[in-house]
Design a binder for these strands. Structure first.
Length: 451
DNA sequence: GCATGATCATGC
DNA sequence: GCATGATCATGC
């Protein structure tokens, strides 16, 4: 570290930009990329071979004089544009000391106030040595994001202070999350106000938020619409309360009343998303707003029937049998989808006349113990597919032995396809109707139950 | 009335 | 053509 010429932001950025376009194998002086195993190797290569300092696991930033932290992060080019390949992982949270601090004195802020973000495109099947750094920017958080990030930090710390560090999950927060980090899922640390060991976690920027940073600040794409027009209001209330307050005036109105109120004339199944957007003063679809995309907020409509039961279970994206059997739970598509997500339930209740009235909304993320139930269902699903699914034709249906809603409190597996002949291949060569994971309707009922 | 399999409607 | 959100239909 001593003697590094990179002591100003300008010098660091200039050096970083000189790396653009050079294949990483030409930068890599120590042959790290050749052995291929090391997951964090691209970041390490740039640290040691390009900036010539020893990688440090310390709480101070990588370039202490300039207060800059180096982050090398992959992105994907997809049909729908540029997307972060993964969350951006920062420093490990020291539960024993961090809770005493304030956001501005926290380890997170010390380390990540200013980051040098170097991005490369990850291409499937291409050796890492062929990748090149495409962009290098100095990034500091925009003020409106920082308000949410500070609220996220407070939320994480409030769980630590309540002796609930073992119950932290990524979905608790919106942009800044505490993701698990360690060689195994069993890596645990002490927490200050409970004897229960807590999983080791690190500060991370959710991949949804990284996608925004990449598009807007690194690739210069146009901004999407904000829900929060005035960040000072946000500072007072917190995001979730802000949204609830905006919507309260519309509680009790039927879909028909809301449609006529906002002049919305559509039979779209996404009607509720359109209505929600109008209630929040947004022109398009709520899912296209900054805050929803940044925070990975997944809106879901729930209909409560007259008798109080939930009409339907809740579906998630379909999975491919051949892909899911390759996965480990910890980085499975299902866990990556559910755990960091903040769900926004838009709850309608059936009235005596049969019409559905907008009852309320509820923000929710999956609690740690329920995620464990999902894990059980996922593992049994994978095992069943590996063992060979039992398929049995009964009348016009094909019965299977994947996990049923009666087997688990939280989730089950069911078809999700255009029709029964819309299939994916099984490992043994047979075809099976596309399936997905669902939350049991009884579980959904539990979630939205009012205290 | 619920559990499970099947399917619809829209948007890209 | 397919992913996604949502709902229908049948049998027990």
């Amino acid at each position: 570290m001593e003697g590094t010429p990179y002591v100003t932001k300008e010098a660091i950025l200039k050096r970083a930009q000189e790396a653009i376009g050079i294949p990483l194998r030409d930068i890599d002086a120590t042959g790290r990329l050749a052995n291929g195993k090391d997951k964090g190797s691209i970041g390490t290569v740039l640290e040691e071979s390009w900036f010539c300092y020893e990688p440090n696991g310390e709480a101070r930033a990588d370039f202490p004089e300039a207060g800059v932290e180096l982050k090398v992060t992959p992105y994907l080019r997809t049909a729908s544009g540029i997307r972060a390949k993964e969350r951006l992982v920062c420093n490990i949270i020291n539960y024993m000391t961090e809770y005493e601090k304030t956001f501005k004195t926290s380890d997170f802020w010390h380390k990540c106030e200013t980051m040098l973000i170097m991005s490369y495109e990850h291409k499937q099947g291409v050796p890492k040595g062929d990748f090149t750094i495409d962009k290098a920017v100095l990034f500091s958080f925009p003020l409106e994001d920082l308000i949410i990030i500070e609220q996220d930090w407070e939320k994480i710390m409030s769980k630590v202070r309540a002796g609930q560090a073992h119950l932290i999950t990524e979905g608790d927060t919106l942009y800044l999350a505490a993701c698990t980090k360690g060689a195994t899922a069993a890596s645990v640390r002490k927490q200050p106000f409970s004897d229960i060991p807590a999983k080791q976690r690190a500060y991370s920027l959710k991949s949804s938020y990284m996608t925004r940073i990449l598009n807007q600040y690194i690739f210069g794409k146009d901004e999407d619409e904000h829900i929060i027009k005035d960040w000072r209001v946000l500072q007072k209330n917190g995001f979730e309360d802000y949204i609830v307050d905006q919507l309260k005036p519309y509680y009790g109105m039927t879909q028909a009343e809301l449609k006529s109120r906002f002049g919305v004339d559509t039979t779209a199944k996404s009607l509720n998303y359109i209505l929600l957007a109008r209630m929040l003063g947004i022109n398009g679809d709520i899912r296209n707003t900054q805050e929803f995309q940044n925070a990975n907020i997944i809106p879901k409509t729930i209909r409560i029937q007259k008798n109080g039961s939930i009409k339907e279970s809740m579906s998630f994206p379909t999975f491919k049998f051949m892909e899911i059997i390759q996965e480990e739970w910890e980085d499975s598509a299902l866990r990556e989808y559910i755990e960091p997500a903040k769900f926004l339930f838009i709850i309608f209740k059936e009235r005596e006349d049969g019409q559905y009235a907008f009852e309320r909304i509820k923000f929710w993320n999956i609690p740690a113990e329920d995620l464990e139930e999902v894990k059980c269902v996922w593992e049994r699903t994978v095992q069943t597919i590996k063992d060979g699914v039992r398929l049995e034709r009964v009348n016009n249906e094909v019965r299977n032995n994947l996990p049923k809603s009666t087997e688990n409190r939280v989730a089950h597996v069911r078809p999700h396809a255009r029709n029964a002949s819309d299939t994916y291949p099984l490992p043994d060569g047979r075809e099976m109707t596309k399936q997905c994971f669902w939350f049991n309707s009884s579980y959904v009922k539990e979630i939205i139950k009012e205290l």
